[in-house]
Design a binder for these strands. Structure first.
Lengths: 161, 161
DNA sequence: GTCTTTTAGTCTCAATATGAAACTTAATTT
DNA sequence: AAATTAAGTTTCATATTGAGACTAAAAGAC
């Protein structure tokens, strides 16, 4: 994916880091507790050079961090940082969409609340006060980082509607 | 991304369809109201052959559908289906993560509640009864589509913890 | 209806990324 | 000290991407 100009968009910015199949699968593995190079490689069946490249990229972006495997060990492994753990809602969104639209009635894994064993609720978009919102309840406003182009585009959008 | 075996995982299944940067950016554009080939091309700066390929793939998977541009028109455009619109939480997750971790204090766009103009709430993982859950409150259970390998893996995970 | 322009692609070819497997080096184990 | 394992790197064949020229059908102008 070779962006001509920056799109001034957090979706695009995020995808430049994790917008590629293996990267998110590596992150998923990390959420499952995988830390070692060889384990990522076995579980995913990814080529070693690609894995090496992606682990470097994720580390460079602070999503994974290298840490000694044990106290005093010289080898290291890869662990999720806070920045990485905050990708959980993204993984949940991917899982829930896949469960519904690709594997309906045959979800491979269910995320449950450890406390009561019940499946978690589907993600919802909510207003500040918690009301659920649909697509039609949403609008876009320029944020503090909006460029002039973004502002113009937004106006065009509003005129269309 | 060439998966050796199916991973029996909805994340992987979903990423096989949309796990590539341009695909999600096309979907984002569609949420912004873009429908025509030339408009996707112009807004994203994507090569025409790649765009053509991705639109076909998205159409084949039922995320976009082709429809006549107007009543009686022979030309068609591309519109989100219900299946496509259900990707909204995924886009919100991408946006919110990017706003927080890549563009802190300089979000390009803010999603607001049309009713009161206030920004929407950050996505949360919630229990069936609505309680917010953190990573540590979650567990995984085999779903109806779990393979034997998945069940075994899950047991291993549980033993580790 | 015919001419012109626009739209939505396809085709070609060079550049880049990926994947498989052999190879290397350092850390651990025996 | 020797053997083994773990974590990569290198090499090279193959696949994907990107830029731009080219094409056919539809829409618009007259």
């Amino acid at each position: 994916m070779k962006l001509a100009d920056p799109l001034n968009c957090s979706v695009a910015a995020t995808l430049e880091i994790i917008g590629e199949g293996w990267t998110l699968l590596i992150i998923r593995e990390a959420f499952l507790g995988t830390r070692r190079f060889a384990d990522f490689q076995h579980h995913l069946g990814i080529a070693r050079n690609i894995l090496s490249d992606r682990l470097k990229k994720l580390t460079r972006h602070g999503i994974l961090k290298r840490a000694p495997i044990g106290p005093g060990a010289k080898r290291h492994d890869y662990r999720l940082t806070e920045k990485g753990r905050e990708l959980l809602p993204l993984l949940v969104a991917l899982t829930q969409w896949g469960d519904r639209w690709i594997n309906p009635d045959s979800a491979p894994l269910t995320m449950i609340d450890r406390r009561d064993g019940k499946p978690i609720r589907p993600l919802r978009i909510q207003a500040a006060d918690g009301r659920p919102l649909t697509l039609h309840d949403l609008a876009l406003a320029p944020g503090p980082g909006a460029t002039e182009a973004t502002r113009t585009r937004l106006k065009t959008l509003r005129d269309e509607h």
